[in-house]
Design a protein around this nucleic acid. Structure first.
Length: 189
DNA sequence: AGCACGATGCTCT
DNA sequence: GAGCATCGTGCTT
């Protein structure tokens, strides 16, 4: 089996579409030649400089530069002094947007994942990166190039009946309407 | 089941 | 110096 990452055209679309369609896809991390993977269960969309919940609200900075680049790349950032969060850059180059990957159901490399997580779940954006050993070294990596060691493949497409939407999580001081727009997607099963 | 809290360090003003 | 796109523990209902 050769890796077959989703194509760049998949990511080069409106961020809400990508966030919705990433549900049920398979996130793969090649670690020491071993596949660790999980089904994507939850995502959030962050869309442009006008979205005051998006890091790009500050414009183009060292931190946000990757979001301004071509779609299909990883935007990985550090937060709360200890956690790495993984995003997939979306929309055509020049427009800063990304989809935050918030939860997976482990599928391959279960023993290794369980070791990384000390037997706990992978339902949370920082839990997911810890499970797959993804950190800042992956920032800017191309998810469409399997030699990066990190990519997303086709998985189990989710029907609309299995998809829930709601407000994004953790944006305590973000003003409305950005705080409450229903840009969080998750599978109900 | 649901809060409250502390850990811990980078980013931008 | 303030503010984080969080997590795990520990305590209360």
């Amino acid at each position: 089996m050769f890796p077959s990452p989703l194509l760049r055209e998949f990511y080069a679309r409106p961020t809400l579409t990508v966030a919705r369609e990433l549900l049920g896809m398979r996130l793969v991390r090649l670690l020491d030649g071993v596949r660790l993977s999980g089904l994507i269960l939850e995502t959030e969309a962050y869309i442009g400089e006008t979205d005051l919940g998006c890091h790009a609200k500050a414009g183009r900075t060292h931190r946000t530069a990757v979001m301004y680049g071509p779609p299909g790349h990883a935007y990985v950032y550090f937060t709360y002094g200890m956690h790495w969060l993984l995003n997939a850059v979306t929309e055509p180059a020049g427009f800063p947007a990304a989809v935050l990957l918030r939860a997976i159901q482990p599928l391959e490399g279960l023993e290794r994942i369980s070791l990384h997580r000390q037997g706990r779940d992978c339902l949370g954006p920082a839990k997911l990166t810890q499970a797959l050993a993804v950190d800042g070294a992956f920032n800017g990596f191309d998810l469409c190039d399997p030699s990066s060691g990190l990519w997303i493949e086709a998985g189990q497409p989710q029907p609309d009946s299995a998809v829930l939407t709601g407000p994004r999580v953790g944006l305590y001081t973000v003003p409305e309407p950005w705080k409450s727009v229903p840009w969080r997607f998750r599978t109900s099963g």
